[in-house]
């Protein structure tokens, strides 16, 4: 299956602006900074969360705790994929007991990743509230899950792929839409 680039829906500047806005929204909704923590979902949710933390620090002058969550072992599609995706370490070096946790990911699609992340998170403790922040919501939910903070709603077809690229991993900040082209028979 080949991928064909269709459109660039977010540039580096747009991404930065969007994340700054989300940071403001998070603060607005959670005025009690004491109990606020961020948890990025591996992989691209992690740089998203790191940037949100930077923005929050710039705005409020406070560095809030940041955790990393690897949800591989909680996925419900391991069997279907007949593969064993690489497992990475979760690093949440603080107690989430009684905390307001903002889960951060790059794209919200079927909702299954978030479902897995919620399960994974609960194994670390009992937060007082969990919220969800995503850069892109592309629709097509299969599970009743809704984001509290959305960077951009992007209506897509199932035939499309959203590629979020970040400097830390991909060397560039941008969001692209690709179309799946079936291989010639």
């Amino acid at each position: 299956m080949a991928l064909k680039e269709k459109a660039r829906i977010m540039t580096a500047e747009k991404m930065a602006r969007t994340l700054r806005r989300i940071a403001h929204e998070i603060l607005e909704k959670n005025p009690d900074m004491e109990n606020l923590v961020l948890v990025g979902i591996k992989r691209r949710g992690v740089p998203m969360a790191e940037r949100l933390r930077e923005h929050i620090e710039l705005i409020e002058g406070v560095k809030i705790p940041l955790g990393i969550l690897d949800i591989t072992m909680y996925r419900d599609d391991l069997e279907a994929k007949n593969c064993s995706p690489e497992v990475n370490k979760s690093e949440i070096n603080f107690s989430i007991e009684g905390k307001r946790v903002v889960l951060v990911d790059d794209v919200l699609y079927t909702g299954r990743t978030v479902r897995a992340a919620l399960d994974a998170l609960m194994d670390f403790g009992r937060p007082s509230a969990v919220q969800l922040a995503v850069l892109i919501d592309r629709g097509h939910r299969e599970i009743p899950i809704r984001a509290d903070y959305v960077g951009k709603n992007v209506p897509t077809s199932r035939n499309e792929v959203i590629s979020v690229k970040v400097k830390e991993i991909d060397g560039v900040d941008e969001v692209l839409i690709h179309e799946k082209i079936p291989d010639e028979p």
Binding site: R75, C83, S84, T113
Partner: peptide, 15 residues
């Protein structure tokens, strides 16, 4: 146990 029971190729999840 993870590598054998989830068997097969290594893959990265796509959104």
């Amino acid at each position: 146990l993870y590598l054998l029971l989830q068997g097969g190729a290594k893959g990265e999840g796509a959104n």
